[in-house]
């Protein structure tokens, strides 16, 4: 991107001030402005209507009680205090945070380990195969994946328990116990999403110059130690981006728990977004749903800000 800036200046200087004074040039600048606004109109109007106004409306709605049928009434912070005290909402937020911690740690660790292994010496066709394989689940729909994973994790006739029985492990009640359900939601989510972090790490690894490794090996860092002392520090900008993106998307998890468990058993796999969905579209509590949405957004913003702040201390830029 940076390479485009210098050539941009050149022709303007070459043309000289004379050409700027000419009528067509000013005319051109005028029509440029018109064209810009015509080109931007669909995007700006669309975003205003379907993103910006809804954001404002969502915040406003959080202070009203409204079930669509009767007129909305202003209730101040009531929605927030009710939501914060509601045991289901509390459990769901706690579930979401636990889910984020475990799933993101698992996803990033797995993706980093696989990326390092794939980038080391191997035949090119094998590398292409591994990359495609790890990327593959990303193109599937989370709903479809959750449908077939439900069968795989079925207690009696599921393939997972069949494999476990081969090594003498008795049937695990995956989808009927709180712990089992949480584990399945995490496994299915990570199965589908680690490929994205993997791709980011591959990109990051490719930008580390080989010379750095050569220098490190002269200094005596070989084997896994060169990853500890060279790869990890040099990869930290990528790790930051990968973790921010992984956390933001994990905080919004919905499809997998909805299809796999419907939030059950009990509330054990209910997530923040599921509660937004249920209070708005099943209980018609649009004000409360908006309040939960505002809280979730604030959490997302706070975590993202904290990550970038922390990164100033731990991220190493070349």
């Amino acid at each position: 991107m940076s390479t485009t800036t210098p050539p941009r200046e050149r022709p303007r200087q070459a043309a000289g001030p004379a050409s700027h004074a000419k009528a067509p040039a000013t005319n051109g600048r005028h029509s440029q402005r018109w064209l810009a606004w015509i080109f931007l109109a669909p995007t700006i109007l669309g975003m205003g209507l379907f993103t910006l106004i809804p954001i404002v409306a969502s915040v406003v709605l959080a202070f009203f009680r409204w079930d669509i049928i009767s007129a909305p009434t202003f209730v101040g912070f009531d929605n927030f205090s009710e939501v914060v005290q509601d045991p289901t909402v509390r459990v769901s937020f706690l579930n979401t945070i636990l889910f984020v911690v475990v799933a993101v740690a698992f996803q990033l660790g797995l993706a980093l380990a696989l990326a390092i292994m794939v980038q080391e010496k191997m035949p090119a066709w094998l590398r292409v195969f591994f990359r495609s394989a790890f990327f593959f689940p990303l193109i599937l729909s989370a709903a479809s994946v959750s449908i077939f994973m439900r069968y795989l994790f079925n207690e009696q006739f599921g393939v997972v328990n069949w494999f476990l029985s081969l090594v003498g492990i008795p049937a695990v009640p995956w989808l009927t116990t709180p712990g089992g359900s949480a584990a399945v939601v995490i496994l299915v989510y990570v199965w589908q999403n680690f490929g994205f972090s993997f791709l980011l790490f591959i990109g990051g690894l490719a930008s580390i110059p080989v010379e750095t490794y050569e220098a490190a090996s002269i200094d005596g860092a070989t084997g896994w130690r060169r990853h500890l002392y060279v790869t990890l520090p040099l990869l930290s900008p990528t790790t930051l981006v990968a973790s921010v993106m992984a956390i933001i998307s994990a905080l919004q998890v919905f499809d997998q728990p909805y299809v796999l468990t419907r939030g059950g058993p009990g509330d054990s796999t209910r997530t923040a977004v599921m509660v937004i969905f249920e209070s708005a579209f099943q209980r018609l509590e649009f004000g409360q749903a908006s309040a939960i949405g505002v809280l979730l957004t604030l959490i997302i913003m706070a975590i993202t800000a904290a990550q970038f702040r922390l990164s100033k201390r731990f991220v190493f830029y070349q």
């Binding site: 106004i53 954001i55 709605l61 977004v273 937004i276 969905f277 579209f281 913003m301």
Partner: peptide, 12 residues
């Protein structure tokens, strides 16, 4: 940066 879940109620 705004998640779709937050705007879904007003969009609806």
């Amino acid at each position: 940066m705004v998640p779709v879940q937050v705007t879904i109620v007003p969009v609806f």
